[in-house]
Design a protein around this nucleic acid. Structure first.
Lengths: 347, 347
DNA sequence: CTGAAAGCGCTTACAG
DNA sequence: CTGAAAGCGCTTACAG
């Protein structure tokens, strides 16, 4: 009886619609819509009949259809470098929480640090008509987003700035954090300090290098270019670069590692060496305090980066106008031991 | 001129549609659809006119509308406990990669270990008509999913089994891994071994406890119930429980920690104590080898869990029928030092 | 309080 | 090769 009322529509994979519910309850489509959406103007009796039909048929409103009609999709996209990178976990979670507070779902994906893949993913999200985007960019040219932004897709860049367009941005203070880290090493007596950084086309890597140079210059210390190595964070490359600095003609007595992955490899390299070398790493990581010596770091507040970006996004969606904004999140130096090691007496 | 052709539809926030493109190119709607979807049967000249209109208007196909008509949404949902937990990062990424290979987007969210929130999130995803779901369950009753599964939503549970329904499932071998860990400690001379586990209603926690008991029994060792503590993974609770076992009337000489968060706290507790205590942790974690002593772990292959689950999901979507399947992913004991410490001579 | 008609932006099935 | 009509499952605007 139930099935017949809906014709053949009970076959596996198909779902009842409001039309089916209306037919079963013996009411109009709009009345079902009213009940489903809790709108007023339905008698208790009618409402109950509709509710019964909903339960009997296992109806669940198709939000895709609703979205098509309403305009807003109540979903936002988050594009980051790698969902598996622990640094982005708290950021991801923070964006999710803000989205949830605004009743939105979160679609996310990894760019794998590939500009083409970033663009493909971002445009796929735009085709799905996400209301907004939070992007940790891999590309350095985002002009491809201009038509989308003009069409109303709110966009906020986090962790790294947008390339060749003006957009809302939330960044950590990479320059200041790096400067503080190197100044800290200098204050502990170091004069030859190595910088192990990420690829120079990445904004944060460039900023951290700038902070390194600024601190060295402020202390009147010359920088031997053999002490600066930027490139992939692949362990082999970092290991090679660190070893070259430590065993070169003018060996460094301290290392500043430009991000968490570099720090991890640096820790491994230093653990194998007979004499201690000072180390400060950009980015905090779990158990940094349990390694011996405990690792001094410049900590970023990844959750706050995400929260700030998502909040900015929803503010735009709520109608806040005005020119693109840039917010900077401070970093914090956490001394734990490795950054307070003195240079060797004979250096 | 361009704007006039589309009437007022160029206002901020609105987007051109195929109808707009058709009008501008002077062709029918269906011809635009053909060009946009690369279907055959369009003369090069017509195609060029349509392409020009697309470019001029900044048209991007609305995939939400397309989805409504086509049935499949080309998106899947992933519900896990906490996007910020590093254990789930590789799983998340693996699911994303498989989804991407199948042209699907990934919507994900955290249940925060709250059954109500899991259900709310899962049903929201069903309302969006995701094609399938990968769920790391927080709830222990999933009958709420029965109508959805009957309606064709493919569902795979990972890391923990579904509650009170039959469903495809991918699990790590928690029992075997725990048994191996405890047997390893026994082989190194321990007879009084503590188990620090997660909440007993979590399946993996129960399985690991079962593995602990099995290994003790197999070696003919009695278990003092003061050596078993299950509960929240909050550091304070774990610290309290570990301390009680270590300082009790029959002090343990070794600890088996039931997951990564427990292990981290256990490491901290042991680092503060004068004499070494053996430790094996379930779940590997970064830098476990750099702590002193390096931490012996039972490693799960989280990426493989995710890959297997997502592959199973798309196989169902591709039409594979048959009863629910269960796959078990082996674990691997990695001796690094902490699990090979002998008991104290006077024990 | 209730419902029929039109429309969101596409695709499907069909006819020329 | 091309396009008009119907429909996916909802909501909006309106009329009774």
């Amino acid at each position: 009886m139930t099935d017949t009322a809906r014709g053949t529509s009970r076959r596996y994979g198909s779902r009842p619609t409001m039309k089916d519910v209306a037919a079963r309850a013996g009411v109009g489509l709009k009345t079902v819509s009213r009940v489903v959406n809790g709108e007023p103007g339905v008698t208790p009796d009618t409402e109950r009949r509709v509710q019964d039909a909903i339960t009997a048929l296992g109806f669940r409103r198709n939000d895709s259809a609703r979205i098509l009609r309403k305009g807003r999709t109540a979903s936002i996209g988050l594009v980051l470098e790698d969902l598996a990178d622990p640094f982005y976990g708290p950021l991801n979670r923070a964006v999710e929480e803000v989205a949830r507070d605004h009743g939105a779902l979160l679609i996310n994906g990894s760019s794998a640090e590939d500009p083409a893949r970033e663009q493909e993913l971002v445009l796929a999200l735009c085709a799905r008509r996400v209301d907004g985007l939070v992007i940790i960019p891999a590309a350095d040219d985002h002009r491809y987003l201009e038509p989308e932004i003009a069409a109303g897709v709110a966009t906020v860049f986090v962790d790294r700035p947008a390339g060749r367009i003006e957009a809302d941005t939330v960044l950590s203070d990479s320059f200041g954090g790096a400067r503080d880290a190197v100044a800290h090493l200098i204050a502990h007596g170091h004069r030859r300090i190595g910088f192990l950084g990420d690829q120079p086309r990445i904004h944060t890597a460039a900023e951290r290098l700038r902070g390194y140079r600024s601190a060295m210059a402020a202390a009147g210390l010359p920088v031997d270019e053999a002490w600066v190595s930027l490139g992939s964070t692949a362990p082999d490359r970092v290991r090679f670069a660190a070893t070259a600095m430590l065993d070169g003609p003018r060996p460094v007595t301290a290392l500043f590692a430009g991000n968490n992955r570099v720090t991890v490899t640096a820790v491994r390299v230093l653990a194998e060496r007979p004499r201690p070398v000072a180390l400060v790493g950009f980015d905090d990581f779990e158990l940094a305090d349990l390694i011996s010596p405990a690792i001094t770091v410049v900590a970023q507040d990844a959750a706050r980066l995400g929260r700030t970006a998502a909040t900015m996004l929803f503010r735009r969606l709520d109608g806040t106008d005005g020119p693109p904004r840039r917010e900077e999140i401070p970093t914090r130096l956490i001394p734990r031991g490795s950054g307070e090691l003195p240079p060797p007496a004979d250096s």
